[in-house]
Structure formats: structure tokens, C-alpha cells
Design a protein around this nucleic acid. Structure first.
Lengths: 168, 168
DNA sequence: TCGCAGCTGAGACTTAGTCTCATCCATGCC
DNA sequence: GGCATGGATGAGACTAAGTCTCAGCTGCGA
């Protein structure tokens, strides 16, 4: 898949630039992330690799995710749960998330006016922003119509594909 | 301190309303939270109680924080670290946070225009919001002037008073 | 193809938070 | 005040997510 090869190439350039190597484990992870996942958890990724009989340890998954975040190919986000989620980046610009607390679905949005307003607030407070993180929790259209009971905001359903956990 | 007594009274009413009791442990925690802390971590609170020789277990601290969040007296927030922070609420309205990645200080702001814009985005996406969470990470004015090197965004310094941890 | 710096897996360890259960105590009733 | 009782407590085991260690492996430049 040529698109993924481009990501792998970008990752390799990033690694070489700081004297690091592109190993087969790293390549496999990039393939998995850019090939099928969008929002995912570290443990979910580990599980998928095991499912495919690609032997990669937990340590390597976490180490590689850290490198991918540093390289800018992957973003680490909070989606209202008490651990991180990751999403791959494909040259698309920054966005924020609407997270449905009933079904766990994630809707992305990008709103330049909102971003602009944030910059104004920072300027007013003499604050130099480097990064921000906005999640709006609530109920998506289809859940609202199904009349499903939203979970309480501090107990959001698992997001993503609900992959089984590897560690009992 | 009469102000704190008012908070304790509100908490007691909340508890009674659902057949729960105001114990001396819960009272002590409310006093500590409303008396001296603003943004704090669960473990920090536990440490402060131990310092004051008030014997309260970890389980009770977490259980009481949960009740305080439910009662609306305390809010649970993400400040860019991988665990929760809490802040007490004193009738003030919702606000968001600017978090300095160099010194760990937290600046609050409330911007009705920003909130309004979020509602518009939700309406456009047919999403019913219940709650949101915005942190802007960056460097505060005094750190910028000191020319301090900001920590990388994914490795934010500890926020709060840097209380020693109880568990080694 | 060789050497070695960087990488890997296995599993011990850490941190933040939850759960269990025997015992305690706040509250309502007498 | 004394008593009954159901909710609350503490100690510590347990869990989830993530980090660290170290002996052996491997990608890549010479």
C-alpha cells in the first residue's frame, strides 16, 4: 500500500535524523496504525498484533508510540477516559473531539474561529500556548434518537473497538 | 471558619438526601479541601491529612472525593497529566485552564464567547453536550521572561505543591 | 561481512485508583 | 442516655496502564 509506505519513509527519516533505526517491529506497528486504526489505545494495538501473530512486546509498543508522537505521525489524546488514546495524523490539520458517552463514538471537528478565540484568551493572559486539548462529552445524534441513557460523564464507556485486554 | 461550615452544611444536606452520613473523616476532608487547597491531587490530599496526624485511609479519600464530585462541591479535571486533579467549587461558574509546562502553575479563565462557539459546533454536528474539558498547555508570562526551557508537552511537570508521595 | 550502537522481549516494578471485609460509629428510636 | 442497625472505615490485596532493566539480538555504515 503506497500510502503507508510514505508514512514509513517519513518515520525512517525521522529516526535516521537522530541516529535511530527502523526495525521490523517498528515497521509492523506503523503499518497496523496507518492501515486500520484511527483512534486506538496502546493495549488495543498490542492485542491486534498478537491476533495477527506478529510478536511484539508491550515495551516495544509503548516505546514506538512515544517515537511516533515525537515524529508527529501520531497524536496522543485524552478522550475523557483515565488513560491515553492515540490517533494517526495524515497531514490533516489539528482538530478536537466530540465524544459520545453512550456509544463511545468520536466525532472530530476543526473550527478556526474557536482556535482564534483561544489565541486571544492566551494573549490577554500573556500566556504562550504550545498545545491544547478539548473534548466535549455528550450524546451523539443517533444515540439521542435511540433514547439511550447516557452514562454519567465521569464513567464514559470504552472508546474504540472494545478490544479484549491481554492482561487479565 | 463560617465559610467552610457552609460547605460542610451543603455536603451534609446532599448526603442526607440519599441516606448517607456525614462522618468526622468526611468533615475533615471538606475542611482541608476548602480551607487550603485549590487544585490538588488525591494523593496530595492524603499526604496533607497524614501530615496533620488526621488518620484517614486512601480508600476513604477516594470515596469522599467521589461523593464531593457528585454533590457538585468539587470538580474533577484533567490538567495535562496522566491522572486526575480536583478543584473545589465555590458557587463560581464553569472555567477552563491554562497550564504552564515550565512551572506547573494553573491560570483559570472563563470565556462566554468560547462556550457559545462550542454550543454552535455541537448544534451543527447534532451533538447534545453535557460537559467539556479544555486545557491549553504552554508557558506563562513569568516563565517566559525568565527564559526557562519549557518541558515537552507530553512531559508536564507536577502541578500543585509537589507534595511528597506516600507510597514509595 | 563485521562491529557495535541501538533495539528487543520477558517480566519485575511503579503509580493511581478500586475492592473486600471485619470492625466501627452516626443516627433514629425508645 | 442506651441500643439497634445500616452505612462508613481502615488495612491491605488487587487491578490497569505504563515504565524500567538487562541479557541477547539486529540494522546499518564502514
Amino acid at each position: 500500500m503506497p500510502t503507508i509506505d510514505r508514512e514509513i519513509h517519513r518515520f525512517q527519516e525521522f529516526l535516521l535524523h537522530q541516529g535511530q533505526k527502523l526495525t521490523k517491529e517498528r515497521t509492523a506497528l506503523v503499518r497496523e496504525i496507518f492501515g486500520t486504526h484511527y483512534h486506538f489505545e496502546a493495549d488495543e494495538l498490542l492485542f491486534k498484533m498478537k491476533q495477527k501473530s506478529v510478536k511484539i512486546s508491550r515495551a516495544t509498543v509503548y516505546r514506538t508510540l512515544e517515537l511516533l508522537v515525537k515524529s508527529g505521525l501520531v497524536r496522543r489524546v485524552h478522550l475523557g477516559e483515565d488513560h491515553y488514546h492515540y490517533e494517526h495524523v495524515r497531514g490533516d490539520s489539528h482538530h478536537d473531539h466530540l465524544v459520545c458517552t453512550a456509544c463511545g463514538s468520536v466525532i472530530e471537528f476543526n473550527d478556526p474561529e474557536l482556535e482564534q478565540r483561544q489565541l486571544e484568551i492566551c494573549a490577554r493572559k500573556k500566556f504562550t500556548p504550545t498545545f491544547h486539548n478539548l473534548q466535549i462529552l455528550g450524546v451523539c445524534d443517533s444515540c439521542r434518537r435511540k433514547g439511550e441513557q447516557p452514562a454519567s460523564p465521569d464513567r464514559v464507556m470504552s472508546i474504540g473497538e472494545g478490544a479484549m485486554r491481554l492482561r487479565k
